[in-house]
Design a binder for these strands. Structure first.
Lengths: 120, 120
DNA sequence: CAGTATCCCATCAGATACTG
DNA sequence: CAGTATCTGATGGGATACTG
């Protein structure tokens, strides 16, 4: 099977390709509760650059996971929200979060009081 | 929090760091049913090179997700199996697989008859 | 069989400057 | 505010040859 010159031999591969990479799942995680603007995402995601943020948002948009809402005002206002397909990923990301928590406990990794995951 | 010079602000970030990257989750997926040898993994994972396979296996081993079992025989025999922590990830990977399947259906992506995901 | 070791190129990603 | 453009260094990753 092929999409955009990419060949997949299975659904799992398709899924990891869509939400893979260094930042994509973190962007989705940050959008899990509500709509966010560019500036908010940049503040909430540690160490992401504007370039990477824009790039990842565009790719998520192309994949139909995130929707970009442009308000024709000055100064510019743009919001990003999960699509229906994107929202269906959130429970899976929560499971991953929980796995990470258990892993941290079993490996005596201490996150301290504020392991809030951006916004929990 | 810090491990190996890496800083995490949340459990989710920790989780995605451990199983992230281009190959790691695919390696885990391939090990989901049973123990596999180096050669089997190379055959089952499309396009992975020996270099990448070894590299990813070592990192998964260091993270305590995969165990490496060496049999002192000639010719060499090495098996890779999931640890308890690794096995706990499998249900999550299945959810991701199912999400990919639904995504493919909603986007009219046709995998044909044999979208077996390496070995389902 | 199960790897290592090199070489080398392609892509990723940070820093900086600029714009509607 | 929400980006784009460009330059450059870092990292990822393929090809090939070799080893216990």
């Amino acid at each position: 099977m092929e999409t955009n010159n990419k060949r997949y031999s299975c659904f799992f591969q398709l899924a990891t390709d869509i939400i893979g990479g260094k930042w994509k799942s973190m962007v989705l995680w940050t959008l899990k509760k509500d709509v966010k603007r560019n500036g908010e995402l940049k503040r909430l995601i540690p160490n992401i650059s504007q370039k990477m943020l824009t790039q990842q948002l565009r790719e998520l948009e192309d994949a139909g996971i995130v929707e970009r809402i442009i308000y024709p005002v000055i100064p510019p206002k743009v919001e990003y929200k999960l699509t229906t397909a994107g929202e269906k990923l959130i429970p899976i990301l929560y499971d991953l979060h929980d796995w990470g928590k258990e892993y941290a406990q079993n490996h005596n990794i201490d996150f301290g009081e504020e392991a809030h995951c951006v916004i929990d």
